[in-house]
Design a protein around this nucleic acid. Structure first.
Lengths: 170, 170
DNA sequence: TAGAATCGACAACGTGGTTGACCAAACCGT
DNA sequence: ACGGTTTGGTCAACCACGTTGTCGATTCTA
């Protein structure tokens, strides 16, 4: 609420000296996240992966080089196995993954990245390094390390949940 | 990709000394954002607003105390006027806003917060202050200010786009 | 005053999520 | 070894949130 604290009569919150309104903190974090992800996808598109969406990228990260089952993928992404299955459908349709039968368990189908999927994953890693390097250039290596350390210290350690879109609902 | 840089043979990226993998940066930013928003809504639920969802909170922020039209709301949230209209439908259904006819322009309908909506907005501001105070307690006032300043410096200045869920699609 | 721009709404659709129901295969205790 | 429980994958129905396109009504403007 841009106008909700224009001048708060008696702000006595810890650290409320000349700081901006407290609601900016989450907005800044999100803006940082979003700008990184947006730039990743812009660059990915330029490098031959125009149809990778953020959700696909996260899913491919979670699939990894060994491959996983749909159920396990759902667990890793923090969503239901059905939702994971749908994402795999789209990924499969785009040629980023294949489902292969598990010889030792006829129920399971291993989801594996295709060479195309692996290429996207490798390029993503490189692009993220470039992006971080840009932050280092702008802020200095120490500040970026501090930023990461501070965030690590303050977010609940409970392993990353990256069901970005899904969490929004509920 | 947790295993994509386990030990990279010859990482020569700027600032790649003992840093973790670069892809953690966006994840940390998102985790910070998400933990703040999650805690806000947990607390909001406890304070009598169990059905405020993140999207509603952002919309109410954007509506503000004066009220806006659906089209303008869409502009502020970075989404189409139709999408804004749908959000307003839900908000209206829950009693957080009302649509009132604009006397001076029969096309427009001003969306305004009800007392219930204003209450949610006020409580959100207070909760965000408490949350930020917690970060200050954990990290120190300077580190939090630095974090905010660094993010401000590094995100494109283009006014906050908070179409969190929507950006994910496309 | 006619033509252009604006506002709000409707409809169809895409994406990402949820539950619930099921079948087939695998595991396990008697 | 056989019947009951788990587990893996899929289908179906549904919801939230976004998109474009269209359209009628109103207002602005040349």
């Amino acid at each position: 609420m841009p106008e909700s604290r224009g001048r708060q009569t008696g702000g006595r919150q810890t650290g409320d000296l000349q700081d901006g309104p407290a609601f900016e903190l989450p907005l800044l974090l999100f803006a940082g996240f979003r700008s990184l992800i947006d730039e990743l996808h812009t660059e990915l598109a330029r490098q031959g992966h125009p149809d990778v969406r953020p959700a696909y990228g996260f899913a491919m990260q979670a699939i990894g080089r060994e491959g996983v089952t749909a159920t396990e993928l759902g667990r890793r992404l923090g969503v239901s196995k059905q939702a994971a299955g749908k994402t795999v459908d789209r990924l499969e349709h785009l040629g980023y993954v294949v489902r292969v039968d598990d010889k030792s368990d006829a129920r399971r189908k291993l989801i594996q990245l295709t060479p195309h999927g692996l290429d996207a994953l490798r390029r993503s890693a490189t692009i993220f390094e470039d992006l971080r390097a840009r932050w280092v250039k702008a802020l200095g290596a120490k500040r970026v390390r501090d930023l990461e350390a501070d965030l690590r210290a303050v977010v609940p350690a409970s392993g990353f949940r990256l069901d970005v879109a899904g969490w929004f609902g509920t």
